[in-house]
Design a protein around this nucleic acid. Structure first.
Lengths: 148, 148
DNA sequence: AAAGATTGACTGTTCAATCTTG
DNA sequence: CAAGATTGAACAGTCAATCTTT
């Protein structure tokens, strides 16, 4: 029974990680809201659906890309469809499934969100780190998500 | 009208930041749940209240420390009190306010959460980075939360 | 039975309105 | 009116159960 306590550096990494990512996410959400735009989570969804083009994408594929549970996708698509940002159509070769496609309004919304989103990233990250520092930071963060 | 797009390094930092902090938080939540323990957010609250000792702490102070809105504190304290982890008493010199104190059960719960919480931090951070890498990572993250 | 997807009920979060005291 | 705190209603997330098709 080894009661392990992280060393101070580990703790510092953790607290910085949480506070930085929370602060950034909040800033993005606030800016989006101030512009009358949808929440950040929608951006990723709209982007993935947009990338799928006119062939569309199946909800279960979206689930894998966005790392959300299936019911999460289901409810998210409900809201996107409600606002007219996506369409959901049955697919012929598999009666269980659907195909999701972005509408014109969906494309416009995604596009309108981007400058706001990008603006925060540039001012909060790009403007604060040199290219080499950013590369080093990305590398170190990558170390934390390696498989074991 | 400058349509700014973050450079690839900035984007990589952002995506790594989000995925690492999300994955870690999920691992901690899952482990806590597997041990029949409360969610991570409670840990910080219990810890802050515990630090206040027998003098207790006022909800508005807790709000500042935990960076939650006042109604968030109100509801969180409802749940903590419901489970017998904290007490809420009126305070004489300010009729509006309350004082929150940790119960014995609250102390035990906080203590039981710690090894689970710490275990994830050690295996996900401490074991993966050298001391100098951890220091460098903490330094770079710190750069991102400097005031401007 | 497994895969794709949805739903009802519960829990938690958010907003605006409210209440009380200073 | 401002500060400390709560609350009803709306919204989002979660769990387990369900439904349909393969």
């Amino acid at each position: 029974m080894c009661m392990q306590t992280p060393d101070p550096q580990t703790t510092k990494v953790w607290t910085s990680l949480v506070s930085v990512s929370r602060a950034l996410q909040e800033r993005i959400e606030d800016d989006l809201k101030a512009h009358g735009l949808p929440p950040l989570a929608w951006y990723d969804a709209l982007f993935e659906i947009e990338k799928a083009g006119k062939h569309g994408i199946r909800p279960f594929e979206l689930k894998e890309r966005l790392l959300l549970p299936q019911y999460g996708i289901s409810r998210l698509l409900d809201r996107l469809a409600e606002r007219g940002l996506v369409t959901r159509d049955g697919v012929q070769d598999d009666g269980r499934g659907q195909v999701v496609r972005l509408t014109q309004k969906g494309r416009e919304t995604r596009l309108a969100m981007w400058p706001v989103y990008a603006g925060v990233l540039v001012s909060a990250i790009g403007d604060r780190l040199s290219a080499s520092e950013a590369a080093e930071l990305a590398r170190l963060l990558g170390r934390l998500s390696e498989d074991r």
